[in-house]
Amino acid sequence: MLDKKGIAKRIAQELQDGWYVNLGIGIPTLIANYIPDGMNVEFQSENGILGMGPFPFEGEEDADYINAGKQTVTIKPGGSIFDSATSFAMIRGQHIQLTVLGAMEVAENGDIANWKIPGRMVKGMGGAMDLVASADNIIVAMMHTNKRGASKLLKRCSLPLTGVACVKKVVTNMAVLDIEGGAFILRERAPGVSVEDIQNATDGKLIIEGDVPEMSI
């Protein structure tokens, strides 16, 4: 079973040289720590940064430089700053090659829910609806089950949707799965996790083809 860092490490293997990437809050943010050596990837933060750098050194933090999670950040040489409309032009206009975000639920047809639990938690969608509606290449990074042990990979989402039929790949603490033809296709198992474990933790339609390899992290 992977921890959150492990999920981030596995997703980092999907990065390609020259890509512009938008990372959501939570597990996706950790991916920036695992960029393969020698690879150039630029991170976009939807509040208006391209070329987002690491956190500042203590004493160098500046209230005017934050990321979409409101954390203090730095800008790398070659980075740029822009307004929110320009930022979402990059996103809706499909200038970003990869979007990684967290989710509360993902359905076998690629629907995603991650912004609201009616009557209990209403924080808002932020940029997530714009991101999932437009991005070609969306990876969801999340735990396979919720805190009560219930599957987050479902036939249909029970929570209000963020986007419809948009997720293509899910990386969890247990598995890597593609979404194709209305089903989760099991591609890889996390170290120490069996196909049966994954079957038991997946409510949506799961397709298992041949031997499913273990991830190499």
């Binding site: 956190f55 203590e58 954390q71 203090t72």
Partner: peptide, 12 residues
């Protein structure tokens, strides 16, 4: 005042 919501730093 320019309050910071999430002060995050890396060690030097």
């Amino acid at each position: 005042e320019k309050r910071i919501e999430q002060r995050t730093v890396r060690s030097s």
